[in-house]
């Protein structure tokens, strides 16, 4: 399994608040081979977002601290490589789709502004260069790729002028800007209504398949897992409690926790959860 594109090894993370240290991840391991579609599923608070943030280098340290483990990307440990090297990967080669389209876009800048800023600094990190015009072309191109009907108009818009579904597409487009090989999606579309969420998931799946990207889909909803992933890790209280190919997991869950999760799947897959899943830490 060392040939996996992304390999999290025995990762332990703790948070220190008010002088008390609380472990949150206890030796999490998971593999995402190139071009594979892997899901990480678990109830709210089980540590999925913390795992994602560790991978993407988004943990604020302190209060967080990584007590042990390694995160290998292309065989190189992200945790020990120089910061500059790591920054060349995150946001470019490994990229992510944010969950909440309402709050993940800056309200006071246009979509074009936000996207071309991301592209500009991604280019800079990678030592590439593009003219302003070329950056804009790329932004419009990617907006087209996420099936946006009028890319120019969307690019000129402020987030408040777009619907939730359109904003979620913009978030996906942002992730695709620098042609990543790995896409991490943390509960994409959970803030949207059921139909739009289904469309977004379909779009994500199509895009990933078209371009042969690896996908790490983070969700609390096993219905989403069944639709998007080939392999599943089940997470509970900061530990991976079960892993299996998707079909196997649904057919014969080994642990009681997984069974409970499966029983909780609404009949109509992708149905909206009744409570909002997590507060962003």
């Amino acid at each position: 399994m060392t040939d996996a594109l992304l390999s999290v090894r025995n990762l332990s993370v703790a948070f220190t608040t008010y002088g008390r240290t609380q472990p949150v991840l206890h030796g999490v391991s998971l593999d995402v081979p190139a071009r594979s579609h892997v899901a990480l599923v678990g109830e709210s608070g089980s540590g999925k977002t913390v795992t994602m943030k560790s991978i993407m280098g988004l943990l604020h340290m302190p209060p967080a601290s990584i007590s042990s483990g390694a995160i290998l990307y292309d065989g190189r440990d992200l945790l020990t490589m120089p910061r500059r090297e790591r920054l060349k990967l995150t946001g470019t080669d490994m990229s992510m789709v944010f969950q909440d389209p309402m709050s993940s876009l800056n309200p006071v800048f246009t979509i074009a502004d936000q996207m071309s800023t991301i592209l500009k600094y991604a280019d800079k990190r990678l030592g590439r260069s593009r003219s302003r015009r070329q950056r804009m072309d790329r932004v419009l191109e990617v907006l087209g790729q996420v099936r946006m009907r009028e890319p120019e108009r969307v690019a000129r818009s402020y987030p408040i002028m777009l619907s939730g579904g359109m904003r979620q597409r913009v978030l996906i487009a942002m992730a695709l800007l620098s042609e990543p090989r790995l896409l991490i999606a943390d509960e994409p579309g959970t803030a949207l209504d059921v139909t739009t969420q289904a469309q977004i998931l379909k779009l994500l799946k199509d895009l990933v398949e078209e371009r042969g990207l690896a996908l790490l889909m983070i969700t609390h909803n096993l219905g989403v897992v069944r639709e998007t992933s080939d392999y599943v890790y089940v997470m509970h209280k900061g530990k991976v409690v079960e892993e299996a190919p998707t079909a196997e997991l649904f057919a014969a869950p080994k642990v009681a926790y997984t069974r409970a999760l499966i029983d909780a799947v609404p009949r109509l897959t992708g149905a909206r959860p009744t409570q909002r899943m997590e507060a962003a830490p």
Binding site: M56, L58, L87, T90, G91, T92, S95, F98, A122, M174
Partner: peptide, 8 residues
């Protein structure tokens, strides 16, 4: 947080 993730 998102702009951080994209390396701005």
């Amino acid at each position: 947080e998102a702009s951080r993730a994209f390396g701005v």
